[in-house]
Design a binder for these strands. Structure first.
Length: 256
DNA sequence: ATGGCTCTCGCGGAGAGA
């Protein structure tokens, strides 16, 4: 079973590239973030034509998450309880024995912005919510976390410590979430590999290998024990003809 | 380095992203 996460930075701007990726990579379950599309304007037909059903939690212009699956999935949760006023950022589906959640975590903007404190609170709500779920089950929590877990996950290494995405407070919230019994599947599979999932559009950051690893697939023990491989799909960070790329690459995990 | 690209809204320029 192939599962994936991808912040696509606008579904309308990315539709043709996303379809190409689905056809080429053939994932079984995918979480998308940053749809920037209303739920009722989601192009279900375009995905059904290539064999994917979608559950959608959209919003006008901003945020928005979706889960695509080969077979129709059961909707479990729409929105993070207690935080629904902070954008459409969480969606959970059940696919056979797998509980699959995708999140678009808040950015926070700057350390002195009100959204930074809201970001920290949002993560606390996420951890509380996650604790209420049945943990012995196979569950995945994937998406754009907007936190760089460790210096190894930043092109600047320790030099970025203290900056937004790299603060002690953010990493404490992330550690608390992981403490509910989750494993960062990429880091589990490649403990020492410096790899990124996001690169700034500007200044040739992608080609200069100046990125951050903020797009993660987290799994419970049951999922971790079934992990076969996981990779960051850098090919789809590249422009393809006249199709522009997202500033994030997809992350794909293969589960036995 | 002080947002150097890209997206959206909506029709001009601004806000947001990370």
């Amino acid at each position: 079973m192939r599962i994936a996460t991808w912040n696509i930075n606008g579904l309308r701007a990315r539709l043709e590239l996303v379809k190409r990726w689905l056809i080429e990579r053939q994932p079984d379950v995918v979480g998308f973030q940053e749809l920037k599309t209303l739920t009722e304007e989601f192009p279900h037909d375009a995905f059904l034509e290539i064999g994917y059903h979608a559950l959608v939690h959209g919003e006008k212009a901003w945020n928005g998450v979706a889960i695509l699956t080969r077979a129709p999935a059961e909707l479990v949760q729409t929105g993070l309880p207690g935080e629904t006023g902070f954008g459409s950022r969480l969606l959970t589906a059940r696919i056979q024995d797998l509980e699959f959640t995708t999140v678009y975590c808040p950015n926070g903007k700057t350390l002195d912005h009100a959204d930074y404190q809201r970001k920290l609170a949002w993560f606390e709500s996420l951890t509380t919510h996650w604790q209420h779920l049945e943990r012995s089950a196979a569950a995945v929590l994937c998406g754009d976390f907007n936190i760089v877990p460790t210096p190894l996950d930043s092109w600047q290494g320790k030099k970025a410590d203290g900056e937004i995405f790299h603060t002690v407070a953010e990493r404490e919230r992330f550690s608390a979430l992981m403490g509910t019994g989750l494993t960062d599947l990429f880091r589990h599979h490649a403990p020492d590999e410096q790899a990124y999932s996001w690169w700034d559009y500007r200044g040739g950051a992608f080609h200069k290998r100046q990125g951050l690893r903020i797009d993660l697939i987290l799994g419970t023990r049951a999922v971790r024990d079934r992990l076969e491989s996981i990779y960051i799909d850098r090919e789809y960070r590249k422009k393809q003809g006249d199709l522009t790329a997202s500033d994030h690459a997809p992350v794909v995990a293969v589960i036995k």
